[in-house]
Nucleic acid binder design. Structure first.
Length: 194
DNA sequence: AATTTGCCCAACCGCAGACTC
DNA sequence: GGAGTCTGCGGTTGGGCAAAT
């Protein structure tokens, strides 16, 4: 396929796509080490890999970033994901922020491949006796969940008990899982009260 | 052994909000 | 204040692999 010319009449540089190679990873890590993980367009340019900024950012956040845990989501983590999803809906980045070393992409994938099925299965078997199941049903259906679901909670003031800001989800000062579990238990009793 | 099916996960896409000039 | 650009997010896709047929 011919490369479309840009406004200057020169052919557009072909953007590299697809899986990252170890050489590309190394180069990206080197550039980020020097310039930091920001100004992604500039980072992408400095790597000389013909990758777009978005692609570099994603690769860094989901794979190259230090302290990333991969695979083997523990029972405790799974429980936490379920509870947080119940509270926040498809706000994967916020959920990931409460699970040190986990990425939003990983949690989203884990939810879509494991937990959503688990919940469906449970509902099918055991009816919908708990509010958890009810809430999951509300929040498991593609476009209707996510921002909308969490936004509704916010509108109801339900997430105001804890300040889920972007800053504290960066992993600098991750809350431990026990603390979060305790908070979620509190939140569940509060939901019962409603 | 070859083919089909289903699952997992990395990566891309489109959008919205934040930021900069 | 408005236009253009950048960043971050959630949804979706497609390749690779293993299990099933």
């Amino acid at each position: 396929m011919p490369v479309a010319p840009n406004s200057s009449g020169l052919p557009k540089r072909k953007v590299n796509r697809g899986a990252w190679t170890t050489q590309e990873d190394r180069k990206l890590a080197q550039v980020i080490e020097v310039h930091g993980p920001r100004r992604w367009k500039a980072v992408a340019a400095k790597t000389g890999l013909n990758r777009c900024g978005k692609s570099c950012r994603l690769r860094w956040l989901n794979y190259l970033r230090p302290n990333i845990k991969r695979g083997d989501i523990s029972v405790q983590e799974e429980d936490l994901i379920l509870r947080l999803h119940k509270l926040l809906g498809n706000r994967w980045s916020l959920i990931a922020g409460r699970l040190p070393g986990r990425t939003d992409n990983e949690i989203k994938n884990y939810w879509n491949s494991h937990l959503s099925k688990k919940i469906k299965h449970k509902q099918h078997r055991g009816g919908r006796s708990t509010h958890m199941q009810q809430d999951s049903a509300l929040c498991t259906d593609g476009a209707t969940m996510g921002r909308g679901c969490a936004a509704q909670r916010e509108a109801n003031g339900m997430t105001n008990c804890v300040n889920f800001t972007q800053d504290d989800s960066t992993g600098k000062d991750p809350m431990n899982l026990e603390w979060m579990s305790r908070f979620l238990e509190m939140d569940e009793s509060w939901l019962d009260f409603l």
